[in-house]
Design a protein around this nucleic acid. Structure first.
Lengths: 222, 222
DNA sequence: CGAAAATTAAAACGTACGTTTGAATAATAC
DNA sequence: GTATTATTCAAACGTACGTTTTAATTTTCG
């Protein structure tokens, strides 16, 4: 009943986290039972409640262990850019890369689980359950605050609400690019298979094009 | 136990669909029980199985009734553009408006339920459950095929895979713009409140900027 | 009106879920 | 080596779920 993925890798706690990450991505939170998690991990049913307290706390821990690392890297990279610039303004494309590029590079780590996690994360931004949105917001708050501030400084002539919206749009484009490939594959047939490595450059071009687009005038459409 | 929204509006079948649409959006499919749906609609628990067969078929019908209409409008609009052009090429911005603008205009219809439905739809693109992805793909297949063909004709010099990817990115940006406002509000504090009417023009600018962005060269980042 | 069909109603069925319990085992500390 | 703590285990608990059943009621239509 144990999974080849998890058998013998790490202790009980780690095995549960690794298996839960995969199953949550494949079947959602509600669609993944405690029994499914523990049997795939090769541990006893009661182990989740013993090590994490509840299913809800397990979900939070699955996100916490990856997000802390992701946002740490993002802020480190932003700090490097600010140090390089030494008070001068940073190019928006570099800020965007520090935030979105870092996520895409985690998403390209298939073996280490980064790919699985980023697909899960992308879907979870629109998760209806309140407790999920709440702790995601807490995990993100500091990082997003710093990056928005950097973008405000880099684009002083652009209205801050515009930047906020475009940041939101970029989050959406990236999340779907990673999480929603199944959907478009089903609709359109198939993507070419040599894609994964090109996703990063394709998406970054798109994001920067959107970020730099002329502001909408709120009159007639073009 | 009945909801003010649904009481007395339409027959049992319609009341169930209207209530289910709202609850699915607010709490997800698994988070919404048959008992919650029927009690809010003021109908008997057995009514869903009588009228729809199962919860799964109810979910499909919630999407079918709106998506058929949405994609019909999209294709009608595309047909009008092709008739206007009379064999000449259509501006990409007009094609994008026919597809995404139409969705955004449905999303701005708060009273008629279009807003609720589009928020639900945006989240459902990344739904893990296979049967959901399957029938969404079927509902979309014809419409997406026509729009991709139109974009291919409008941008003959651009590689078709690039167009496909950018169409995907645009879908993501739009879906999150509609479905994921909660997430960013939590992260960033608040948007200004006079937004809803401006979302369409803001997003269209972003989408067109992304669509027109210079193609990535697959070498070093800028 | 009165028979036939469609719809609504209350109650129950079987199942799967998250969690808890209390004993058994393993690891740690003195 | 023994006492103490941490962990694993099998079993069960109570609950909520989707669905089904059977009867009552309403609607349809000749």
């Amino acid at each position: 009943m144990t999974d080849s993925l998890a058998k013998g890798h790490g202790d009980t706690r780690s095995r549960i986290l690794d298996v839960a990450e995969v199953l949550f991505m494949e079947q959602g939170f509600d669609g993944t039972s405690m029994r499914s998690i523990t049997s795939h991990a090769g541990v006893n049913l009661a182990a989740v409640n013993y090590h994490f307290g509840s299913k809800e706390q397990l979900i939070q821990e699955v996100f916490h262990r990856r997000l802390t690392e992701l946002n740490r890297i993002r802020l480190t990279r932003l700090g490097e850019l600010e140090a390089e610039a030494g008070g001068a303004s940073i190019k928006p494309s570099r800020i965007v890369d520090a935030f979105f590029g870092t996520a895409l590079r985690m998403a390209s780590d298939v073996e280490g689980g980064g790919h699985t996690f980023m697909r899960l994360l992308g879907r979870t931004y629109t998760e209806p359950q309140a407790f999920v949105r709440k702790f995601l917001a807490e995990e993100y708050a500091e990082c997003v605050e710093h990056f928005l501030a950097a973008l405000y400084r880099a684009l002083p002539e652009v209205d801050r609400n515009e930047i906020l919206w475009r940041f939101h749009f970029m989050m959406g484009a990236m999340s779907y690019a990673i999480a929603g490939t199944d959907a478009l594959q089903l609709v359109t047939g198939k993507f070419d298979d040599e894609d994964p490595s090109r996703l990063e450059s394709r998406l970054m071009s798109f994001l920067l094009g959107g970020l730099r687009a002329p502001l909408a005038d709120f009159g007639a459409a073009q």
